[in-house]
Design a protein around this nucleic acid. Sequence first.
DNA 1: TCATTCCATATTGTCGACAATTTTGCAATC
DNA 2: GATTGCAAAATTGTCGACAATATGGAATGA
Lengths: 225, 225
Amino acid sequence: MSDQTGVSVQQIVEKVWLSIAERRLRPGVQLKEEQMATIFNVSRARIRQALALLQRDGLVAIIPNRGAFVCKPSVEEARDVFFVRRTVERCVVERLCKGVSKADIKRLRDHVAKERIANTQDITTDIIKLSGGFHLLLAETVGSDFLFATMRDLIARSSLITAVYRNTNRFNCGPDEHAEIVEAIVGNDADRATHLMAHHLEHVESELDLTEIRDLSHDLRAALA
Amino acid sequence: MSDQTGVSVQQIVEKVWLSIAERRLRPGVQLKEEQMATIFNVSRARIRQALALLQRDGLVAIIPNRGAFVCKPSVEEARDVFFVRRTVERCVVERLCKGVSKADIKRLRDHVAKERIANTQDITTDIIKLSGGFHLLLAETVGSDFLFATMRDLIARSSLITAVYRNTNRFNCGPDEHAEIVEAIVGNDADRATHLMAHHLEHVESELDLTEIRDLSHDLRAALA
DNA sequence: TCATTCCATATTGTCGACAATTTTGCAATC
DNA sequence: GATTGCAAAATTGTCGACAATATGGAATGA
């Protein structure tokens, strides 16, 4: 009758991640374990594991004996994330410009092609997944566990920040800029590649409204001053 | 009879962390759940939670259906970690130089004082904990969750790298350089503070033997070439 | 009417047991 | 003597149940 199919921890994480990135889950809402266990048709233990991973990625905050809540990053945190991201992505690109295999090149170009398709067909879910996935793929191609893990963390937080502070309806991180970066890497042109990447990230950040007045709900004294 | 005292997840993480940093646990060894459950006198569930956190910190690798193993970072990964660390610590120091409270200053100076005591008394465990703790305290003082989390990650990985690649018996990261950095921050001298920090990190990295011939056990073809 | 206390409810934290998977030891075969 | 196949042991993965803790509302008193 009912599908007995248990959902893997990774699938749960991805589902929640997407829901947050697509703004279906707003910052502050509580992710109750039993509720999620029912939705995904698994035991609470697996949900707890998924929540721990989401905490690792900085998407949810787990308060002891209270539960897990979707994070709301502050404007300053958003700036910090992009600051570090500029550095790490630069490091990634520099490493890639030292040479990539033919297989890697194909993978990168194929990914950009997928992004193009998602963009023309306007499938929001795919656009979000793939545009973050591009930067993750770059890090993965380097082959350093550390850079990959760091990038994973940064992408997750960037997605949350984008979901919270995006001021346009169009999703940024378009495939054209990605394509240019790939070709610069293929041509081993480190200067051009790092420059393009810096410009790309500036572009992404510029579409966010980080001048917004801070939410001072948590600090009544400051709010009423 | 036997002490019924359950050990918290955080305590387990710290114990393992220290054991790795002090080289009592070598890279590659498996951390078996039941064994650890017996040692810490807790259930396996709590051990699993601790192992998940250690994986988050990049200290152990969890292979599905196989178990958890202490990581062995490659030389290149070590360089990546220090590359990113230079950037993040610079960001932290710059933010701190914009002004810190009197309470923060006291906390920082107290910490350095503790380091001095541990150094004179030559208590290895404390020295390791405190020297990493200093950099963590700097990040915490900034007040950004993201910078703190990133720094936490970097410190954990740095500790593992130091444990693996340290070529001297003396533990680096001495309190004198820390003290200088604190005083530069107190004096709001961003130039001097960032310069000191950069020099300090270079010093730490210089005591590692990162020229070591790569371990190619995992790549037979390359090893036999 | 408002503040306080107490209790019922809901939610998270922990544990022990069982199922699934992998590793290991041993024997049979080539 | 080396290799393959199989079974037993060890280890990880998952679950349901119970204990501990926090939340919200009703009852009580000023």
